[in-house]
Nucleic acid binder design. Sequence first.
RNA 1: AGUCCCGUAGCUCAGUCUGGUUAGAGCACUACACUGAUAAUGUAGGGGUCGACAGUUCAACUCUGUCCGGGACUACCA
Length: 1131
Amino acid sequence: MKKYTEYKHLDLPAIGSDMLNFWEHAHIFDKSVSSREDSVPFVFYEGPPSANGMPGIHHVMARAIKDIFCRYQTLQGKLVKRKAGWDTHGLPIELAVEKTLGITKEDIGKKISIEDYNKACRKEVLKYQDRWEELTRLMGYWVDMKHPYVTFDNTYMESVWWLLKQLYSKDLLYKGYTIQPYSPAAGTGLSSHEINQPGCYRNVKDTSAVAMFKLADALSKLPGAEALDTYFLAWTTTPWTLPSNTALAVGAEIEYVVVKTYHPSTHQAVQVVLAKDLLSTHFPEKNADLEFAAYKAGDKAIPFQVVASHLGKALAGLRYEQLLPFAQPEDGDAFRVITGDFVTTSDGTGIVHIAPSFGADDFRAAKQNGIGSLTLVDKRGRFLPQVQDGTFLYGEEYVKEAYLDEAEKAASLEKQRVALQGIIADTSKIQYLSVDERIVLKLQQEGKLFKKEKYEHSYPHCWRTDKPILYYPLDSWFVKVTAKKDRMIELNKTINWKPEHTGTGRFGEWLNNLQDWNLSRSRFWGIPLPIWRSEDGTEEKCIGSVEELKREIEKATQAGYPSEFPMDETLDLHKPYIDRVVLLSDSGKVMHRESDLIDVWFDSGAMPFAQMHYPFENKAEIDDRTNYPADFIAEGVDQTRGWFYTLHAISVLLFDSVAYKNVVSNGLVLDKNGNKMSKRLGNAVDPFETIAKYGADATRWYMITNASPWDNLKFDQEGIAEVQRKFFGTLYNTYSFFALYANIDGFAYAEEEIPLAQRPEIDRWVLSELNSLIALVDNAYSEYEPTKAGRAIEYFVAEHLSNWYVRLCRRRFWKGSYTSDKIAAYQTLYTCLETIAHLASPIAPFFSDRLFKDLNAVAGRNTSESVHLSRFPKVQEAHIDKALEERMELAQKICSMVLSIRKKENIRVRQPLNTIQIPITGSGLKEKIEAVKELILSELNVKKIEFVDESQTRIVKNLKLNFKTLGKKCGKDMKEVQAYAAANSKEIIGQIEAEGKAMVHIAGNNYQLDPEDVDIIPVDIPGWKVANAGAITVALDTVITPELKEEGLARELVNRIQNLRKEKFLEVTDKITLHIEDHEQMRTAILNNLNYICTETLAVSLVSEGPIDPAGADLVDVDEEIRILIKINKA
RNA sequence: AGUCCCGUAGCUCAGUCUGGUUAGAGCACUACACUGAUAAUGUAGGGGUCGACAGUUCAACUCUGUCCGGGACUACCA
């Protein structure tokens, strides 16, 4: 006879390692895939992590979510392949290598060859691969780590090249200018990632100026304006960009005013244009009343007067004279007013000076409006030679003071002292004047300056050189995602986002404001852009495969341009090797590779295709859509504009399809105080330690059930301990209880299934609840709501199964012979436990499998080797009986109320009582209670329930208004009706009970109260002890008759004997003989309950005798007054 | 700066979509009970201006607006 395994105590970490062993030896994961080879696929994509850092606790969170739904779908019979992946390129890796080697970007190619550098990167990137694999294993995340995709593999890179070539052929890949953060001091562009490092933004004081741009169009285009010189006012904190100005931007819906005033330096009458909202910051209110005629040159108070007002969009198209004409833009129709959505009236003048070369917004706005640019600053941060006038500017000057060293400053100062004579009174006294300051001086001289001031603002600095950065136009390759913007938005609407707002909000907004994707990175370790270009830039070729590369190399070689590039097994498509390839254009020109790498985000976004080396292998799987798009992906919410976006963009652009149908974006894992975890702060939680201490199941369960995955999780180890106790402890206890008695009775589920109809109410109830639970959990998993699933399982186990079913049914398991009632109890409990194993297995894979295997090792009901190879339970609709569930809820409520009365009256449950009374309200209440009467009586240790007709006048009733119906009826008089009803509740109750309605008169209005407008609730039965909750009231007869007292004593005695049995380590099944010392108060109690006492304690004989020998006997207190000796012997 | 999320008991969270009667759980705390599931369990208690203000409504934790605090992402702008 096989026995259910019984355990000494619950050890989740041990169960974890046991099950890991079993899974590995029996190849359960492989089987969970191979056993479903012919089934419908459920496509999952693993977002590749970068293994150059240690995995953290948040990875357990993200991976638990992935695992849950993959396991669930496997239980549903789907084929769920999961290929692991590694993200291996990119800046974080390069920066880590630079740090390790103690070098900077400038050293690469000098102090260290690119070859060696990239070798170091290749090594760095998988530094912690074994730790990642170990965590994956320990936490029970099932993913195929034996055959991962690796983004630095040639096959992966080849697929990426193929995708790039598709983009190229579709004209979706182009070379263009973009404005990027650029450090002239370091001579390199910076990524936004670099700029966002702490300390890069610093407060600096710059000279700001409001410049005057003279209207060049006819005044008739500005209705209402007078016949005066007219200027647009625009503010800048970087006057050095003014020579490169090519446009002015206004807000389309912002209101602008034309103001008549006097020029601040020429003192001529002029008109200026600025935003109405900012009028008062430039023109003090008090000057509005000044007489124009009274103004004299040099007066401090300058009169002004608004002469016209226009919306920004009406100003669009107006032309102005170039402010500082050092050079002309080569293309485009410059020096016009345009509109821009970025224009605000928070400061300045509401008119923005646009220098397209030195600002991202500027560049975009200029491009959209067909306006060319001027880039009058070189890459070292100096003006071009033509920016000189001999007086203020001397050509080839650094535009930021910080770029000059002391000697350069001194030399420049000498120049200034000469050149500025006549403009500045005593030039010997001046300090070095920055370019900004001199431009302001120049504007003032030329009558183009409205105002100047020092302005403090935060400005980004280069983290390597500490010098201010510039925004500078650089050559870059772009993916023209804007060409498919509408389609991307449209297809996004078909994606099921969890939570929804991430898709509509964060992602949707991002798509609505889509910009072309800058693909270029001037780095070393990444996928090289497969584009070769002729020196003059007129011809180029995009290579889409290794094969094509080979052909082109051969072609060039034959024409006399051999490349030193091995095409054998040492092939490596990385730098520096690929840069040695020289190709020929169609017309025979030599072409070299564009030096950039591609954005690492393209690598990961390409994974649906590149992980399969598409289209060079596995072509059909993509083309026939069996492995594409994904049914499900999941990552942190920080990937919304990262991986989620790049997947979507590549898919829509090239395959006109979504890349994934369902996506879960989880929130952050914070420390228990809500702070971000970081190694630096020392509050990072080590996932290995956590799993070792609590087990993966408890960790996963805690993370999933504590909060929805998309909310941030405040990770507190106490919470895991609680889950361990509350959920796993309770479930384990329930199993232990089952195993204990099933082993005694030899229950192996060998008997015929006892039909539902023949099982007692409580069995049918728990099975009904169980099937309701299956439906709920199934639904929650299928809708990607793991928290709801977990919480429902938890609730069922703790409340329904353990605290009610097992507690009430205990006697059925240990009492009496092996009857059909007992078998029904075993079958019911078994079914519950096994079902829970299935339902919980996606979240708690270890414990669930242990439970499943322990049960089936004896019962053999389910032949699956592991719960993870089984099928998800089917809801048996016939078992669900909602009315029964309601009845039981009612029973629980009544029990809890009566227990609270007992508590208040200080009558222990062991003391039997005679009667509870329940006033019957509403129809069917009596029948409902009748059905669960036995449970209530035994739980409460009461003899009988009496139902009291509610019409009995002795019952005290309360009137409660139904605001939902009455609110509609009474409207504004609701409050008064309420007050009236409170004051006259007796009359109203009487009327409604007698006539079925009651009338209320308020302020001339009559309102009829119908029975549905009120609840009449019995609250008290005078002379009884009562409790009420909602519409239910119960009363308890607390009189203890002599019979009841005896019965109570007998129960106390049984209790003491049971305790003695336990102290003496008797087996649950051992029979005993009893000798009880005679006591007058106990005499009749024992006599009248002899049978009861003997069956309960398994006594074959009971002798009550006079004084007994204290030797071998125990002295016990039966109650406060009775102390007797009891002797127990094993029979 | 923009977009989005969050704010309910000491802590972790339900409830808000669809307004209605006394805002609920668990943990923690206190007291008492129960106990052949026992490192479990029950009952009772204290603990809440539902982030603030305004609006809509007979009625607002719930709807609307503004703001405050925390967080994420994106951008960095005259």
